[in-house]
Design a protein around this nucleic acid. Structure first.
Ligand SMILES: [Mn+2]
Ligand SMILES: [Mn+2]
Ligand SMILES: [Zn+2]
Ligand SMILES: [Zn+2]
Lengths: 167, 167
DNA sequence: CCCAACAAGATAATCATTCTCAATTAATCA
DNA sequence: TGATTAATTGAGAATGATTATCTTGTTGGG
C-alpha cells in the first residue's frame, strides 16, 4: 500500500463527500512520521501538533482520528491505559500485533502473518468480510518479573492465573 | 481448569488477603451459568442479578468484576460498544477469540489453539509471561454485506480498506 | 464472641469522548 | 473567478462509563 499524499487523501475523502482540510492533512502527517512502534492517544496527538506550531482543537482531533480509523487510514488500539491509541494502518506485510505488560503498560509489537492468514480463513468461512484483526497479548514484562511480581500487589497488580498450552 | 465453587473461590480470595462475600459469589455464579458466547457489561450483570432477586449496587459490580478480572477469573473484553464486557476466563482448551461486526456489533466466538500457541512462543521469546491473549477481528457480517454495505454510509458505517494477504 | 480490616452501598467526582452551535472554509459550478 | 452550499472547525457544554469517597455493614482470625 502506497503512503498517502495530500492528493490521494483528498481523492479518497472527496469520493465519500468529505473534504481535505489542513487539519486532516497535518494529522496524517504526524502518523506517517511516527517512529515504528509508537502509538498516540488523542491528547498526545494534540501535543505533538502543538509543539510543531500547528495547534488543532481536541474536538477536531477526536473527529479526525475517528473518521480516519473508519476509513481504514488509522488503526484504533485498545491497549491498557483507559484511552484509545492510534497508529497508521499498514496492511500486509506491515500488519502486526501487540503485547502489553499489565504492570507497566510497556507495549511491544510483533509480526505474525500466520495469525492474519488464519483469521482471514476463519472469517470467510463464516461469511464475514475481514477489516482488521488485532491480537492483544496481555503479559508481565521481564522487568516486572525481575522485580518479583506479583509480590507487591495492592495498587497496580494483575492476574496470576496464566493461560498455557497443557498439551 | 476446574470450575470454581464457593470454597475454591474463598481460598483464592483469602490467599491474597481478600474475602468471600455473597456478592462476589453471586457474580461468579452468573458468569458460570451464562450461555456460551454471551458476554455481560457491568450494567447487564446488574440487571441479571436484579431479575434474580439479588440486587447488587453498581459500585460493587464494577469493583468485583475488575477484581475478578485481575485475579484471572473473568476475562475483560473490549469489543465495540463503548463499554467493557466480561466472560468467564476458561483456559485451554476453552480459550477462544472474537470476531465483531462493525456495523451491528454482532459477536461470534471461535477457537484457535494455534494462535494461543504462537502467542505463547512469541511472548516467551521476549522474556514475558503470558496472561491472556485475545484476537479481536473486526468484520462486516453477512447480513450487513447482504444489505449492500457500505451503501448507506452516514451514521454507522465503517472502513472499506480491508486487509488481505496479497501473497 | 470481638476486633480490625475489608467490603458494600449511595453518591459525588473523573475523565475520555461526543455533542451543540455559531463562525469558517472547501468543493462545485455558473 | 466569485457565489453557493454543505462540510468542518473550535469552544465549550454534555454525556456516560468508570472510579473515588465516605459511612455503615461484614468477614475472618484470634
Ligand atoms: Mn497513552
Ligand atoms: Mn453491551
Ligand atoms: Zn512491565
Ligand atoms: Zn453486522
Amino acid at each position: 500500500m502506497i503512503p498517502y499524499t495530500a492528493n490521494t487523501l483528498k481523492a479518497e475523502l472527496n469520493s465519500r463527500g468529505w473534504r481535505l482540510t489542513p487539519q486532516r492533512e497535518k494529522i496524517l502527517h504526524v502518523f506517517q512520521n511516527l517512529p515504528r512502534g509508537d502509538h498516540l492517544s488523542a491528547e498526545e496527538l494534540q501535543h505533538t501538533l502543538e509543539e510543531r506550531g500547528e495547534p488543532i482543537s481536541l474536538s477536531t482531533i477526536y473527529r479526525s482520528v475517528k473518521l480516519m480509523a473508519r476509513m481504514g487510514i488509522l488503526r484504533e488500539l485498545e491497549l491498557a491505559e483507559g484511552h484509545k491509541h492510534y497508529e497508521l494502518h499498514r496492511p500486509h506485510p506491515h500488519h502486526h500485533h501487540h503485547m502489553v505488560c499489565v504492570q507497566c503498560n510497556k507495549t511491544v509489537e510483533f509480526n505474525n502473518d500466520s495469525i492474519l492468514k488464519q483469521s482471514l480463513r476463519q472469517v470467510e468461512k463464516e461469511g464475514f468480510q475481514l477489516i482488521d484483526c488485532q491480537l492483544t497479548v496481555t503479559t508481565i514484562c521481564p522487568e516486572a518479573l525481575r522485580m518479583g511480581w506479583p509480590s507487591g500487589l495492592p495498587s497496580n497488580w494483575a492476574c496470576t492465573r496464566v493461560i498455557s498450552e497443557d498439551k
